[in-house]
């Protein structure tokens, strides 16, 4: 009896699915895909391959503690124009955001805190959805502000250090909040970004 009722239920589902109006592939919608999004093409792949190569080169430069070289390489990658310009595809935007976060982290290491903040702001302008990429930018910002706090405290600039500490805490809090959203979305308990 239980088998029969299950079969009936499955058949009803199958028929309902057959009868349903055409709609965009939910998997693609969930994946952040828009109906008018361009197809994955050579230009996109070329940019992504270039980005991969640059990041691997940066890995090597970092392994040798050649931070200036790493910054130079990443700067070449994030410098406009990117494929698609203002209407860059999600992949390009996300890789750019990730690269900007890395570059900001390196600038933070070099003590160029203002340059790092500019880079993070640029990344946040690209990664607008509440994705891991945006979350990472906030984490990097928190890290940069923490370094800034340490530097200011060392210079005995208490006021500046306190402000940097607050900025760091705010950025890290936002990073955690975004990460929670990402997890909720993955569990199906929150809307798409």
């Amino acid at each position: 009896m239980r088998v029969t009722s299950r079969l009936t239920l499955i058949c009803a589902l199958v028929l309902t699915a057959c009868k349903a109006q055409p709609s965009p592939d939910p998997a693609l919608v969930a994946a952040g895909c828009h109906e008018d999004a361009p197809a994955v093409d050579e230009t996109l792949l070329a940019f992504l391959s270039k980005a991969r190569a640059v990041h691997l080169q940066v890995d090597l430069a970092e392994a040798d503690a050649k931070i200036d070289e790493a910054v130079r390489l990443l700067d070449g990658l994030v410098r406009p124009p990117a494929p698609g310009g203002e209407n860059a595809s999600p992949e390009v935007a996300e890789v750019l955001a990730d690269s900007l976060a890395r570059l900001a982290e390196l600038e933070g290491q070099r003590g160029n805190f203002e340059a790092a903040r500019v880079l993070v702001r640029r990344g946040l302008g690209i990664a607008k959805g509440r994705t891991q990429f945006r979350g990472r930018l906030f984490e990097v910002l928190g890290s940069v502000e923490k370094r800034s706090f340490d530097a200011l405290r060392e210079r005995r600039d208490d006021e500046g250090a306190t402000a940097a500490k607050l900025r760091s805490l705010a950025a890290l809090k936002e990073a955690v909040s975004i990460q929670e959203d990402v997890i909720d979305r993955a569990l199906g308990t929150a809307p798409s970004p």
Partner: peptide, 15 residues
């Protein structure tokens, strides 16, 4: 080892 291996090849191998 970085002196013994072409960096591009090393990067390729890591990928």
């Amino acid at each position: 080892f970085e002196q013994r291996l072409d960096p591009a090849r090393l990067a390729e191998l890591e990928a």
